[in-house]
Design a protein around this nucleic acid. Structure first.
Lengths: 226, 226
DNA sequence: GCCGACAAGATTGTCAACAATCTCGTTGTC
DNA sequence: GACAACGAGATTGTTGACAATCTTGTCGGC
């Protein structure tokens, strides 16, 4: 939001700034699936013109984050559990590949940096700081993909994550699951440090699929409540 | 183009129709990387309004197919060889996963259909019909992903393919490479028919990476000419 | 009370005119 | 001839007004 206001001084935020703002609202759960995005509201909140807001909508629709319907405007698109499953399977395949590539080409410094962040995450588990854990987790995965040298995959995974981002905070990142994730990271790191690409690949795949299992159980629990 | 004109009778083509039209132009190599897309030209050719054309631009920019620069309009974004490499690695991981899933859940009818298309492709190799081969190849891969039941991956792979699509016809789909591809398909099918998911996964990964090797060699040859 | 027809307001779709910026050829100078 | 300043034309950016459609609330009939 700061960026949007800052730009406003000059000539108003660009379409991509508005898109970023909407994305952040979705990730922060301030815009929930199904919710309508009324153009004038977005204009009021971002300072953009109607034209730019609509351009931003088109971008986000192409990313699969919004649904646009004639004369009904844009809504936040929600992912069904089945879609979340497909999405996690894709992520598992892509990140596993990155883990293997990272193991092959990363410098000792990059590995050490990954270890450092993993250590900080373990601290967050102990001190129960899920918010901070989430930020470090994102950083950890990004660093690994960056080190694997595949910007295309990095971008795809970022997009895959956005629609489920809001599910994680408040349900995912607590207690036992945090501990599991930290343990997974440790295992991946061990394989990387041993320069064992296949091992890193398997552990990463298992890590992402563990996350999916957790979400599935959560979903089943919610349905039982009905 | 036909679709665009047909719609014109009613109320002009929608933004997504225009986007489809531009995509097809790029795939057909009638729009080449770096080429400028002047708004009025697109309007003339599609019958859309300026507003809709610009909406289409935004969508395609989000897909990574166009680059939009202030006051300079949209250009077709070209993929560097390095990006093509990243893109194929991602595709290999995703399609390998689909091959495994397909093997696990496909019905005998679906497998038979895949075999039928593979047989037709082999005929195209003998009769040297690369154009037809290309169409069947796309159908074959789509059918496999569809059968794997992962629409998210199907969509991602479609997008990954668009920027390199024009490289394939005229260079890729000829002689020896066609024969190799047909042989790869046969191997994948054998593994699927034997209900061997791991085998199908490996063969599919190898198949996609063979394609990458071919493109790499081609690229090296082009650079030697300079 | 329930339900459909209707109307007013809200919201989105479309367009055309104008402003801002870029492109490229021209001109003048050295 | 090389080069920079200039300017006309081309192209894109922005805005506001109006049309088309949806949404919501109201009213009357049953």
């Amino acid at each position: 939001m700061e960026a949007a206001i800052e730009k406003l001084a000059k000539r108003g935020p660009s379409a991509s700034h508005i898109a970023d703002w909407i994305r952040s609202q979705i990730r922060g759960n301030r815009l929930v699936p199904g919710q309508r995005l009324v153009e004038v509201d977005i204009i009021r909140q971002t300072g953009g013109s109607r034209f730019k807001v609509r351009e931003a909508y088109q971008r986000l629709a192409a990313e699969g984050l919004l649904e646009i319907e004639e004369y009904r405007g844009a809504r936040v698109r929600g992912a069904s559990m089945d879609e979340v499953r497909q999405l996690y399977r894709a992520r598992a395949a892509l990140e596993a590949l990155c883990a293997a590539d990272f193991t092959r080409k990363a410098s000792d410094e990059e590995i050490a940096r990954l270890g450092e962040i993993a250590r900080q995450m373990e601290e967050c588990v102990e001190s129960e700081q899920p918010q901070e854990f989430g930020k470090l987790n994102a950083e950890w995965h990004t660093l690994l993909m960056r080190g694997a040298g595949n910007a295309v995959i990095e971008d795809m995974v970022r997009r895959l994550n956005t629609p489920v981002h809001h599910l994680l905070f408040g349900t995912f990142y607590r207690g036992e699951r945090l501990r599991e994730a930290a343990r997974d990271h440790r295992r991946i790191l061990d394989a990387i440090e041993a320069r064992n690409p296949d091992g890193a690949e398997c552990e990463m795949r298992a890590h992402v699929e563990n996350g999916l299992s957790f979400l599935s159980e959560l979903d089943r629990a919610v349905h039982l409540e009905d």
